[in-house]
């Protein structure tokens, strides 16, 4: 193998890793906003909770490859390209974030919530001063699951022209080129480990003891 091939492969790895990170960050960011928001609403309105959990659970059971496929023909949000991949990844990340937000808020100790209300907190103050800080470890654990899973799932984005490290892996599989497969898989695994470690540190900062 000559240096030119290696050099161009390295360039591909850099470019596609950057794409991969964008896919993951944008979709996770949006999933956090939607998931935490819906989670908070769910603890205030039982109907919202039922519907959102049901929808997110169904989305989670669809195999990721199929979900990408389903979105392709949908007008406006579908089609070939990065945006379809991002929407798909958002839908896929919703459940763990939503569920952990609800669990975190609803498992705040009863006397703690009771006292906060009895001292005269408004619902917003209860949320901001008590429920969210105490639910933070649980919410962060949900985000961590979503993030790490997302890094793996984003590989499939390549199938619908979403780019990312999947491009190398699929190309490698098609041409039976182990080096190329590894060039896609190793950075993806490294990203997942990095994300997991980073989230772990963040979670620890929010432990009450």
């Amino acid at each position: 193998m000559d240096t030119f091939v290696i050099k161009s492969l390295l360039q591909d790895v850099m470019r596609l890793t950057a794409q991969h990170i964008v896919l993951v960050c944008v979709s996770c960011g949006a999933a956090v906003i939607i998931g935490v928001g819906l989670g908070i609403l769910s603890t205030r309105h039982r109907r919202v909770r039922k519907v959102s959990i049901a929808v997110a659970s169904v989305l989670q059971t669809i195999p990721s490859l199929a979900l990408f496929g389903f979105l392709l023909p949908v007008p406006l949000i579908g089609g070939i390209g990065q945006h379809t991949a991002i929407i798909c990844l958002i839908l896929y990340s919703l459940l763990p974030i939503l569920r952990n937000t609800i669990v975190g808020i609803t498992t705040v100790d009863y006397p703690v919530r009771d006292a906060a209300v009895a001292m005269g907190m408004t619902d917003y103050q209860l949320l901001r001063l008590v429920e969210l800080p105490l639910a933070a470890p649980s919410i962060l654990a949900g985000i961590r699951i979503a993030l790490v899973t997302n890094i793996g799932t984003a590989v499939i984005a390549a199938v619908i022209g979403g780019g990312g490290l999947g491009v190398l892996i699929f190309r490698g599989v098609a041409s039976l080129d182990t080096l190329e497969i590894l060039a896609g898989a190793i950075p993806a695994a490294a990203l997942a480990l990095l994300a997991d470690g980073g989230m772990n540190l963040l979670e620890r900062r929010f432990q009450t003891r």
């Binding site: 100790d109 006397p111 703690v112 919530r113 009771d114 006292a115 906060a116 009895a118 001292m119 001063l129 008590v130 800080p133 105490l134 009450t208």
Partner: peptide, 12 residues
């Protein structure tokens, strides 16, 4: 001024 039976201090 309410002292609740189980104290209910905010743990964080």
């Amino acid at each position: 001024g309410y002292v609740i039976q189980e104290f209910g201090l905010l743990p964080h």
